[in-house]
Design a protein around this nucleic acid. Structure first.
Lengths: 194, 194
DNA sequence: CTTGGTTCTGAACGCGCGTTCAGTTAAGCC
DNA sequence: GGCTTAACTGAACGCGCGTTCAGAACCAAG
């Protein structure tokens, strides 16, 4: 037996990435084998190498795509006030990360499994994202809309706080996503306020 | 050759745990082999089994000890006001976690590598710790010292924010640990305030 | 119906894994 | 000095790892 009827590169390629995404998120990069990924796709391990140079590239591509997606989706609204921009960022971060739990998990947990070169690229993308928030905070400080001592520290604090939502929030419980967005926005607004 | 002169259980035991701690924190549990740990200690892999039943127990013991240490060290000061208690918690969390970066990293990253039974035990300890903060917040809400809609969500938000310090703060830079404690305390105080 | 190119299989490569254990060495006690 | 016992070595066990590749199976075009 060889390839199954109807199986094509256009279909298998995305399936490889999806399977890798889910397995990496569930068990961790180091604990997942190429044979496990292949099994989830329904092919032999060797076939994966039609779609990725090696296991490392599979991880790197997933992380890079995710970070680029985040950067492309984060609202850029310079005409709004700093407070409005901050609210937009908070609501966006929570909603976007909620929609991509596996990608977010991998992007935060598997950094140390990247080669040095790949790590630097992902870190640069992450810094770009953080710079968006830091810019909002810095402008808000300059305009006296916000009152924090250090925009950089506030950036770290807010992002850590927001990303933490993914560790506990599950849809269908006591609170809706909108409820969570509201409450986090209230806390963030107060924390950087006067 | 067999054992080296002067080498004893009292010495090798802690050295095994220290080596495992550092290697797990640096490379991740799944990526570290018993032979690597043994090599760091200066013995053969088989000798490790005088000090741990298996690799899983090594991880579990490290995490359990850490969580118990945290619980034993967290201040319990019921005579203080909710605001004072919250300040104590914030400063404690930042300082304690700063002193144990490897343990903290492992405790947050390697949960999925625990067996189901072990995971439940660690989770219970973690819930106990979070309950300390949640209790402070709940009392502060009842006494109108704090104004947040939901003590549970505020607990998650504050802990995520504080734990995030470990991802970026390094001693010897622009800010001292006391500076960081001050700034985070200001943000936390405002975020739960009226 | 043949040909060409894409996709996949199945086997193989060397290697390191966690764990076990018989045997060896060293320390402490009489 | 002889004996007991703790501590450790070194080799072995079966197994799965990432990756490669020749050849088979399949599809589309002429």
């Amino acid at each position: 037996m060889a390839r199954t009827a109807g199986s094509h590169s256009d279909i298998t390629g995305p399936r490889v990435r999806t399977a890798a995404l889910q397995l990496f998120a569930e068990h961790g990069f180091a604990a997942v084998s190429m044979r496990q990924i292949a099994s989830a796709v329904g092919v032999q391990a060797g076939a994966l190498y039609n779609y990725t140079a090696d296991k490392q590239s599979l991880l790197f591509d997933l992380m890079k795509t995710h970070m680029q997606d985040v950067l492309a989706a984060v609202p850029d609204t310079p005409h709004l006030t700093p407070t409005q921009q901050l609210e937009g960022f908070v609501r966006f971060h929570i909603a976007f990360h909620h929609r991509r739990p596996e990608e977010v998990f991998i992007a935060y947990m598997e950094l140390r499994n990247l080669t040095a070169d790949n790590f630097e690229i992902i870190e640069e993308l992450r810094r770009s994202y953080e710079a968006r928030l830091q810019g909002i905070l810095a402008r808000g400080i300059a305009s006296d809309d916000f009152a924090v001592e250090d925009a950089k520290i506030a950036t770290f604090a807010v992002i850590a706080m927001l990303t933490g939502v993914n560790t506990w929030f599950k849809e269908g419980g006591r609170l809706s996503l909108a409820d969570v967005q509201d409450q986090y926005w209230h806390m963030v607004r107060k924390s950087v306020g006067a």
